[in-house]
Amino acid sequence: MKTTAVRLYGKKDLRLESFELPDIKDDEILAKVVCDSLCMSSYKAATQGSDHKRIPNEVDKNPIIIGHEFAGELMKVGSKWADQFKAGDKFSIQPALNYEKGPVGILSAPGYSYTQIGGDATYVIIPGEVMEQDCLLPYKGAGFYPASLSEPLSCVIGAMHANYHTTPGSYVHKMEIVDKGKMAILAGVGPMGLAAVNYVLHRDDRRPSLLVVTDVDQARLDRAASLYTTEFAASRGIELIYLNTAGLADPVAGLKELSGGEGYNDVFVFAPVRPVVEQADAILAFDGCLNFFAGPSDPKFSAMFNFYNVHYAYTHVVGTSGGN
């Protein structure tokens, strides 16, 4: 089977090439890719090359196929999986395999680490570990793009689940955001920030009582407010505030004032920008959790963090990459 794919050979070295795929093994599946949505993580992989944690060192000799938010149709199923899948089935992929024996270990993922599977291809071979990890997801909906977009939404959901809080003296981490707490999403009106706002507003199991979403571009904030209105948020029991921090002399003071002076239980950072990270740290409430969602392209990216508050106010930070 001939496929055409965008392959990564190194830093900023992407090539559109056609090549032959081998016959599938008994534990593999041949698939046609119909839809692949674009993610900034692919841009980071393309700019970093083998310096990226998910890219193999020998990518210059064994190029990987880029793209990890994809969906399509199964073409031929190896005998090992014939009782679970069949030709013609529609599928999506969870690229966060968490498979220790992958090309780069636990961080191995289609679209980063594999030579025969990635979203920017016409046909791919799905390796056995994808099915072994339950990461080949049957899709029965209309079209294909909603299945592709399930991957970034999974990342947002995972981020909410990854936050944690404690009760002084118990030493037990209570996973999740604080129900009826105060939440801030900083730099939060890009595609992933909007996905987070959407998820927060539509959750039934828990939600904040206050949600403040910031950016420095008023046009982007206005668009977000038209998509996810304060009126709808209020109907869900959430006070939603869109805030342009570029217009504030002291953004930290302004944000803390909106919280009633207490700060925020859960703060999500959606841009790898040092002042935004430090702003997030400064507005944490007691036992506040900072989730650094936006992955930086600079391996040496850093920011100041108030360790006095870590010690006395129980503030803490988590980072999430991918869903499950």
Rank of each mutant, 00 (worst) to 15 (best):
M160H: 00
Y43H: 05
A96D: 01
K80P: 04
G143V: 14
K101L: 15
I24W: 05
I65G: 02
G261Y: 05
I55F: 00
I65C: 03
K140D: 13
G260E: 09
V104A: 03
S113Q: 01
L30K: 13
T230Y: 11
V212Y: 03
V6D: 00
V172D: 07
G105F: 08
R15F: 14
S148Q: 03
D298P: 02
R236Y: 08
C289H: 04
A303L: 05
A142I: 13
V273T: 11
K174C: 12
P275L: 14
V269N: 08
T166L: 10
A219T: 10
K12E: 13
G322A: 14
S50H: 15
E231D: 10
E28H: 04
M75V: 14
S108R: 06
V273D: 09
T122R: 11
D60W: 13
G141N: 10
L258I: 08
M40E: 08
S18C: 08
E278A: 13
H165S: 01
T4Y: 01
G118A: 15
K174L: 12
Q48D: 04
D204S: 09
A87P: 04
M131V: 07
G105P: 02
K86C: 07
I117R: 02
T47I: 12
E231K: 05
V318G: 13
G72Y: 08
D51L: 03
L243R: 07
P152H: 13
M175T: 11
M192T: 03
S297N: 05
D51Q: 06
Y112V: 09
I177R: 05
V124D: 04
A285V: 02
S154V: 09
D13Q: 10
A195C: 12
P63E: 11
N198T: 07
V318L: 11
D250T: 11
D205E: 12
P110H: 09
G322V: 09
H316T: 12
A159C: 08
A246I: 06
S18W: 02
V273L: 12
L38Q: 09
